[in-house]
Design a protein around this nucleic acid. Sequence first.
DNA 1: AACATATTTCATCGACCGTAGAAATAAGTT
DNA 2: AACTTATTTCTACGGTCGATGAAATATGTT
Lengths: 252, 252
Amino acid sequence: MTIDIKQQKGEKRKKGGGDPQVAMPSPRATPRGRPTKFDGSADRSAGILDAAEALFAAHGFYGVTVRQVANEAGVDPALLSYYFESKRGLFDAVFSRRAELVNERRMESMRRYEASTAAMTVEGCLTAFLEPVLYLWEVGGDKWRNYLRLVALVNSTPSWGGTAMNEFFDPVIERLIELLKRVLPEARDEDLYWCYNFASGALSLSFADTGRIDKLSGGLCRSGDVAAVRKRLSFFLATGTSELCRRLADGS
Amino acid sequence: MTIDIKQQKGEKRKKGGGDPQVAMPSPRATPRGRPTKFDGSADRSAGILDAAEALFAAHGFYGVTVRQVANEAGVDPALLSYYFESKRGLFDAVFSRRAELVNERRMESMRRYEASTAAMTVEGCLTAFLEPVLYLWEVGGDKWRNYLRLVALVNSTPSWGGTAMNEFFDPVIERLIELLKRVLPEARDEDLYWCYNFASGALSLSFADTGRIDKLSGGLCRSGDVAAVRKRLSFFLATGTSELCRRLADGS
DNA sequence: AACATATTTCATCGACCGTAGAAATAAGTT
DNA sequence: AACTTATTTCTACGGTCGATGAAATATGTT
């Protein structure tokens, strides 16, 4: 869950036999070693995570090399191993870094909605569930755009997307289902799960930001248009969910 | 569009200097050269496409190596270059192989629906659009499952998913939008495009078959359950679409 | 029979992959 | 001042990648 890397790794340096070399007067182009305290490079690992986030979101895990990430972050490739052990460790760190915040915001949003409203609605529940991520999508800047795109990509990846997504995000989804059950007491569980699945797909494709709708609509719609999605998605999903659950309420 | 590979490639064989070697009496383990007419290996390229389809659908373009594909298909890796020029060429061939049939079926389905019904409905249009792929998903066997999963993956891939998807599938989608416009004459174009986008995401995640809903629902729902999707998806999307378009019909 | 052609395996190329080890360098500690 | 530790670049390794060229072999053509 949490990133517990950054343990020391320099237990070498024994065997320091003399081996005198000629003095090289020219200073190194890029000096190695521990950085000076106030050179502005506060936290390199965050920069690595940002670069990896953007690249993984755009090309997927296998479509990115550690050298690309290092290059984008402006560090040596070996530094990624130092901080994150392996490429997979880097990916996991990227994925989990912002997950907790997303979950907290969503939980808090649903808690507040539940507490503040006497008569909850399906659309209200879905809005409470969606608004936090739409907000981060809108005002979170490029980093949050990249992260949400990455989550969308993982969400629709068969092989190893499943475990990571379930591990991190299932509790929040269960909370949503719980709310929906109270608004739609006659709804069957399986219908709610299916409706959530449809909703998840619609949201994922929104975050994916593929640019497809731009071409399809001849420029009328823009792929990353948060306001357009916000105006439509909750309502769209809410009517679909409530009508479907009502219709299928009594047996097959 | 069509696959026009398979042009001859063997214009070598000059410079046949003697270089006499000792006769090797043992027959080759796997003999090379042109296959005998009736040895059952009718069309190797189809087998390669099948193997590539399954692997690309499961792991994406970069997550698959040509050696894996060759191994799965039981052929030498060099044969992939022979038939498809490059790895990218192989992928394009996989993607386009079944696209035309899908488009024909969908077009025919919508044409028939339009001709047979006096009063079209939103759900009817969506069913006409969705049923052909749901049918292929259901009875098409593993190959079609793999192909639809691949399309779903490409559909939600930002970088180079866009062009391929638009090129192949936009005409059918425009046809659907055209039908929907007749059923919902008051609907604004942008709302219809957004609704399609949501629908596309929901359908993609269904095809992706990630197994997420299985775990989330505790086994109540199964990810590749065509009947469950068929029973719900059209209705879900239809109510969402019609209600949303009605609500937003008069300006922002 | 001689020749051209299509299909396949084999051998291998140069490039790049992820990663590890060692050296370098500054900060912290005693 | 001496020693330890954290962070960084450098070098390079063994492996794998996609792709190519040549040889092998059966078919088709003349």
